[in-house]
Design a protein around this nucleic acid. Structure first.
Lengths: 234, 234
DNA sequence: TTGCGCTATTTGGTATTCAAAAGTTTCCGG
DNA sequence: CCGGAAACTTTTGAATACCAAATAGCGCAA
């Protein structure tokens, strides 16, 4: 691959291809509606069509692309409705994750990784986006919940959550950290009901804070026809 | 493929391969711990390795198999804990689906497909398993909810739900139909709060009714080592 | 201008091949 | 006789080449 760090080794090539495409879509380098030409893309990523074709079904399951038989794959055009749907499901899953995590702590599990993640979210690497640390914290809660099926569903949501966070970088970082701290402490003290309620409140606050920003930036409807080519030359 | 109906056309080959493997795993023809030899399997399903390798990541996302780099893919050994996890997440998703569906009906959507599905679940094709009609009904609710992200998460759960239903075929069919009828009518009358509550009660009743049966039939722990070969000859 | 048919590209899929890593067997030394 | 190292074998991960079918774009004619 031309532009990914050589450090990421060990995992399958198709997963790295999927991640590279995910990044291109989230960052907007592959705009909604783009056609993903297999040969073109595999040449650009410097892999054969095999790992590419293994990556596409993964991205389709996550809803980043949709494939039509014999016609190819197209980048999903994210709309305001997609954003609402992300909040809808976070509202159902994150309280459950918080509840599980708190129960695990009450049962003897150590919340030290979670507390470390919270501390890291506060101090943070200066240059780093707040959005990344944000998702990391939620992933840490899911990890602590130790619930395999929840982990799978969350990882399906994760890409979309990253997409949403990147669209709203100006959200009050300090207030956000305080919300997180409250939630993390409820978990670390092993209080499942409180953790569940705080997680729900956290999601709903995020929805309320984000949607006004988003409604101006997102198309309300995907462009009906005429898919744009992948590369518009410099 | 040797043993699938030729009727299923149009959809990609890899999805048919995934479905064939799913069936083999759910039915127990591929027992937990089996190693999935790519060459062997692709020969048996009469496809090349490409569609097979496109299907494996899908099955892995659903948790039917797990793959270790350079070591291959192995069938997941389902445990009681897996069953509990399915109920945990149905409890979070199905009430939301019911709520959405009822809201859609209240907003003008027609519940006729859902009502037809309920009627079909009652009359049913005699030979057919109740489990299939059961999942169909839940899928119909999700369809009516018209929520893309929910649909994706539900389809990830669906395979496991089918697995669970097939393990508990003796559950009271009539009482189950009455529960379904109550839920469907709440949705059809556009009453989201009632539908949500009924869906939650339905899941919890199912959990209470199923777990005693399951605890005797499922291994509490996966077999640690020594994976059995795929085919034990007749 | 509009409808029709032809070409050309692209996808879906197969077969074959190769390198590297894991697992297995063999063989030698203590 | 047992343990460990070396050689061998199997299998995955990935690339390359190739083909058939379907779509899409294009030109042409009425």
């Amino acid at each position: 691959m031309t532009d990914t760090e050589p450090s990421e080794a060990g995992v399958g090539l198709s997963e790295r291809v999927a991640e590279a495409l995910r990044e291109r879509i989230i960052s907007g380098r592959l705009p909604g509606g783009s056609k993903l030409n297999e040969r073109e893309l595999s040449a650009e990523l410097d892999v054969s069509r095999i790992p590419l074709r293994e990556a596409l079904p993964l991205l389709e399951a996550e809803g980043f692309i949709h494939s039509e038989a014999r016609r190819g794959s197209f980048v999903h055009t994210f709309t305001l409705r997609d954003a609402v749907e992300v909040f809808d499901l976070r509202l159902r899953l994150e309280p459950f994750a918080a509840q599980c995590a708190a129960l695990r702590v009450a049962g003897g599990a150590s919340p030290e990784d979670l507390l470390a993640s919270l501390e890291f979210a506060r101090t943070g690497v200066p240059g780093e986006q707040a959005s990344g640390r944000n998702s990391d914290l939620h992933e840490e809660i899911v990890r602590l919940a130790d619930h395999d099926l929840l982990r799978r569903l969350s990882s399906l949501l994760n890409g979309r959550v990253r997409w949403l966070f990147r669209l709203t970088p100006e959200r009050d970082t300090h207030g956000m950290w305080e919300e997180h701290a409250e939630l993390v402490h409820a978990i670390a003290e092993g209080r499942p009901a409180l953790a569940e309620a705080l997680a729900g409140a956290h999601v709903e606050r995020g929805r309320h804070a984000s949607l006004p920003h988003l409604s101006g930036r997102l198309p309300s409807e995907p462009v009906p026809r005429r898919a744009r080519k992948t590369r518009s030359p410099a």
